[in-house]
C-alpha cells in the first residue's frame, strides 16, 4: 500500500524538525498512542491502540529515524506487532520545506500489513491509513500551536 500527502504547518521548519523527534509531541499527535519512549537518539518504542474495520488491536512497535538531513528530510521506519491481529510495518520519506514562516511537509509512505488486519480489514486499510495520517498531522499542528 502506498500513500502520500502534503500538509502546511503554521510553524517554522526548525520547530517542525524538532517536533517530529520529540517523544512528547509525537505521543500526543499519533492517534491511539498510549506509550512512546525514546530508546536512543534515533530510536523509539511505542504502544498504539488502533481499530481497522472490525479488528481492534494494540500494537507494540519500534520506530527508527534514518537518513536525517537537518532540517529538510528524514526517513521514518517502523514495525509493530499486534498479537493475533497481525502486524504492520512500513516506512515514510518526509520532506520539509520552509515557506515564509510556515513549513510545507510532504511525505510518501509504503506500508505492509499482515494477519487478521489484512484478512478482515484490507478494504478499509487505505482509507483508515489516510484518515490516521490526516489526524496525525492535524494533531501535530495543534501541538505546535500550543507550544
Amino acid at each position: 500500500m502506498d500513500m502520500s500527502g502534503e500538509y502546511r504547518i503554521e510553524a517554522s521548519i526548525d520547530q517542525v524538525w524538532a517536533a517530529i523527534q520529540n517523544p512528547d509531541i509525537l505521543k500526543a499527535a499519533i492517534p491511539g498512542c498510549e506509550e512512546l519512549d525514546k530508546t536512543s537518539d534515533t530510536e523509539m518504542s511505542a504502544k498504539v491502540s488502533l481499530k481497522i474495520g472490525p479488528v481492534k488491536a494494540k500494537f507494540a512497535g519500534e520506530v527508527e529515524l534514518q537518513d536525517m538531513i537537518e532540517p529538510t528530510s528524514l526517513k521514518i521506519q517502523g514495525e509493530g506487532k499486534g498479537g493475533i491481529a497481525g502486524f504492520a510495518k512500513g516506512g515514510a520519506d518526509v520532506q520539509l520545506a520552509a515557506d515564509g514562516d510556515e513549513t510545507i511537509l510532504t511525505y510518501t509512505a509504503k506500508a505492509q500489513v499482515g494477519g487478521k488486519i489484512a484478512q478482515l480489514g484490507s478494504r478499509l486499510i487505505q482509507s483508515t491509513a489516510a484518515k490516521l495520517a490526516d489526524k496525525f498531522f492535524a494533531n501535530l499542528k495543534d501541538q505546535l500551536a500550543n507550544t
Binding site: 505492509q112 500489513v113 499482515g114 494477519g115 489484512a118 484478512q119 478482515l120 484490507s122 478494504r123
Partner: peptide
C-alpha cells in the same frame, strides 16, 4: 492473495 502472500478475501465481507 496480495503479492506478499496476505489473504485479502478472508471473510464473507470480502
Amino acid at each position: 492473495y496480495d503479492d506478499d502472500g496476505q489473504l485479502l478475501s478472508g471473510s464473507y465481507m470480502d
